[in-house]
Design a protein around this nucleic acid. Structure first.
Lengths: 171, 171
DNA sequence: GCGAGATGCTTAACATGTTAAGTGTCGTGG
DNA sequence: CCACGACACTTAACATGTTAAGCATCTCGC
């Protein structure tokens, strides 16, 4: 046991902050974003859960409700989901009869998705409570501040759009 | 194109926006937060992946690097992970020899975690590139703006802290 | 047309998020 | 001292995130 409490263990650990100099953990941007998002989603989860909907399933239904029909790839982009996740979610929503699938006539590879009558009825039940929660959050945080936050988040996204190669250099 | 559904399908779909009135999907706060976080994490993932580290494993190592030792529950709170996720991650990090586990002498239920010498060496390799990426993001977005964003995210989290009961009313 | 590559989506495999149930250990009232 | 509830994880089960393969279908050069 090379790690005697007083000789080696704590000593090595105490110096680790010097050996690995990094910004304070709790101040990292990814953590801030994660915590903020979780604080928001925590408000919605109980309501969705009562209707046996996951957050992502709800995202899909919302995206579908505002349009006639949409191809799978475009839906993935809109709902910000990766293809594999979307495939599974569509399979489940289809099994529950909440959506309808067909193939594009001009290209059989493409699937076209639309919300079903049953899906619309479910949304009519869930939407009011969802909007009420959003309104409560807006009141609590301040509508103006919320808009400003959204702008800053959008700007962050935009400013990182062309930075994908940041660390390819060190390869 | 000549989608014969003109009797039922598209008609119902076109009215769905009226039947289910909700704010525009892409402007929802959870989506904004998700997209922003993804834009940030996309920068880090390649570097972590080269060292066979997932985002969460890296979070754990970072949390451990700044302290001597920590109990599992406290570590979960710090790294913002749920117990079950943390259990699995610790099992894997332990198998790779990156951390050390022992039991609290006064309470055998509690596990005490610390980073190992090997874990520290791994961090020494990864940290510079990680910090460089963070610096690039900061330059790109603006240090002042970044600090302001962090403040607003913290305020959002704080303002929602006591709102957990928002929709229990409708039960 | 026809075969190789591109495209659109699905499946596979593994890791985490999330809730519920299980396992050992503690602490305490009787 | 000992049953019983509380506590600290851990395991289980199912859904998603993520990357890589797999399967049809399409496109295009020849």
């Amino acid at each position: 046991m090379a790690r005697k409490k007083s000789a080696n263990g704590p000593a090595a650990a105490k110096t680790s902050a010097r050996r690995v100099p990094m910004r304070e953990f709790s101040r990292s941007l990814p953590m801030s974003l994660l915590r903020a998002r979780e604080a928001v989603m925590r408000q919605f989860r109980p309501s969705l859960r009562r209707h046996d909907l996951t957050e992502q399933q709800w995202r899909i239904l919302r995206a579908l409700a505002s349009i006639d029909a949409i191809e799978v790839t475009e839906l993935a982009r809109t709902a910000f989901l990766l293809g594999p996740s979307l495939s599974r979610i569509l399979r489940d929503l289809d099994a529950r009869g909440l959506i309808e699938r067909k193939s594009a006539k001009t290209d059989l590879r493409r699937g076209v998705i639309s919300i079903s009558e049953r899906g619309l009825r479910l949304m009519e039940v869930v939407a009011p409570s969802s909007e009420a929660i959003y309104a409560a959050i807006t009141r609590r945080y301040g509508a103006r501040k919320l808009a400003e936050l959204q702008d800053m988040l959008g700007a962050l996204e935009a400013s990182l759009a062309g930075l994908e190669f940041a660390d390819e250099l060190s390869e």
